[in-house]
Amino acid sequence: MAKYSLRVITLGYLAFLLILPVGLIGWRTFADGLSPVIDALTSDDAVHAFRVTLIVAVWAVLLNTVFGVGAALLLVRGRIPGKRLLSALIDLPLAVSPVIVGLALILVYGSFEPIGRWFGDRGVQIIFAVPGMVLATVFVSLPLVVRAIVPVLQEMGNEQEQAAHTLGAGRWATFWRITIPGIRWALAYGVVLCLARALGEYGAVAVVSGRVVGQTQTATLFVEERYQNFDTVSAYATATALALIAIVALLIAKLLDRGALKRSEKH
């Protein structure tokens, strides 16, 4: 009996907190049929917002993937002092509020700050432009790739790399042919998580972008702006689109996770 009531409590909690709200948005979005949704999503501003989101997200994922692989190798294989400090610093972004992230970047890279002015003199604007948004997105998604790879790298051990060395492979060759393939599922998982996070970032880019419609507006900022302007159709449509992307990313990540698990069980 206890089992039954626990199940009911759980499902009830999840229904009211998670499933109903998300379902309602989907419902409301398509309340007037499919065509207003398509219209809203294909408007110039919407398309532009998605494009900005994509550019910023791809840059952030690329940078954090390269960093992630390097940092993971350092943490697992490197003979360096202060590994725990490095690990804690990498996890730091998880504890920082997105608006604080935005503030922090403005204080360093804003056009009136020394560093920001240095860039400004050379024609590169960081805050209120795409570079700043990339920085903000990199900040908030920094730990994701590293944390996905580290346990797998640890489990793999470095005997395969040693074997590759005895067979004549240099460090680069070993890295590309042995290390990367060895962690490929975990790497893919980390990249998907990072991408989902980057696509969904709101608070930090809200501060850092200046929210110029048609220029520095991401899809998430677009949702908010449309909602504030009582254009609920566009707001809901874009929100649903983003939610669908998030769900797809979740499913892909789940598959990758299970695939990696199956492979490791075989050994």
Binding site: V22, L24, R197, G203, A239
Partner: peptide, 18 residues
Amino acid sequence: TLIDLPFALPTIVAGLVL
């Protein structure tokens, strides 16, 4: 799988949804 949705969902969308 759905439990992870709040991780993946943009916060503004969560706000709208609620």
